[in-house]
């Protein structure tokens, strides 16, 4: 008797995506779809696509979906979850969407303790619009709207969303993961599973920030991108669980000095 050990997740549509080579959206999509399958909630899961690179996510999941306006996915998620608490609701957002234009929506969604899950993909840049500076762009990192590198005197320091949201008193699950190497991806999937499980158990708001590469807009090949992420992003955006609903909070991490400027070649 043979047993299938690997197959296409039923919650993922069997289509080609528009994502660039070396981008990790595809990996993250797959992991979300696998978890929806594994938890057996496909028939009652609603996804919300953002504005940004994942704007067409509704074509890539085999699920009912809403397309939200820029940054408003947590508000749309709130609207759905309050209307139909029996549904599993997840918002899939990038860093421009969530940390810039949608900063108010994510803070208040988390603070109200909406029982929804947010998959927050942080690649430190605006991808869809062509590589502009994001709130998460690292100090010194070059972007099309900071051609000499992010100047922290003018643009401030990158926002650490996971850390910021974990300061809220409302119980939540907040974690940060990365998918740039298989071992990290295994860890990321565990975080995602825990996040979706908290929602399934009607426990709390959950958010997993996932560090991602953007070879196209970083201007470096995919293999170098994963290296760049590990060397530059992980020190500023440490991985791990920052908050659990039972009050098990992570101790604050020491802030490291600004990274060496990145120059696109």
């Amino acid at each position: 008797m043979s047993e299938a050990v690997f197959k296409n997740p039923g919650s993922l549509a069997d289509v080609q995506t528009h994502y660039c080579p070396g981008c990790t959206h595809g990996v993250i999509h797959r992991m979300v779809a696998e978890i929806v399958d594994e938890l057996g909630v496909k028939e009652r899961t609603i996804g919300i696509a953002p504005v940004g690179c994942a704007v067409l996510a509704y074509n890539y999941f085999n699920l009912d979906f809403h397309e939200a306006s820029h940054g408003r996915a947590p508000a749309v998620a709130t609207g759905i979850k309050r209307a139909r608490p029996d549904l599993m609701v997840f918002a899939y957002q990038g860093d421009g969407d969530l940390a810039s234009i949608g900063a108010a929506e994510i803070v208040h969604c988390a603070n109200r303790g909406e029982k929804v899950t947010v998959v927050f993909v942080n690649n430190a840049i605006y991808g869809m619009t062509g590589g502009q500076m994001a709130p998460t762009t690292l100090p010194g990192q070059i972007a099309t709207t900071c051609p000499t590198g992010r100047d922290t005197d003018l643009a401030g320091f990158p926002i650490r969303i996971a850390e910021m949201l974990s300061t809220l008193r409302t119980p939540a699950f907040i974690a940060r993961a990365s998918v740039h190497k298989p071992i990290y991806a295994v860890h990321a999937k565990q975080m995602l599973r825990e996040a979706f499980t908290y929602q399934k158990d009607d426990r709390c708001f959950s958010l997993v920030e996932i560090l991602s590469t953007c070879p196209t807009n970083w201007g470096i090949p995919p293999a170098e991108s994963t290296e760049w992420l590990e060397k530059n992003m992980i020190p500023y955006y440490p991985l791990g669980v920052f908050k659990r609903p039972d009050g098990e909070d992570r101790a604050p991490l020491p802030i490291r000095p600004a990274r060496r400027p990145h120059h696109a070649e």
């Binding site: 809403h66 939200a68 306006s69 508000a75 609207g79």
Partner: peptide, 8 residues
């Protein structure tokens, strides 16, 4: 936008 989600 909450209305959008609920109406949807």
């Amino acid at each position: 936008n909450m209305l959008y989600g609920a109406a949807g």
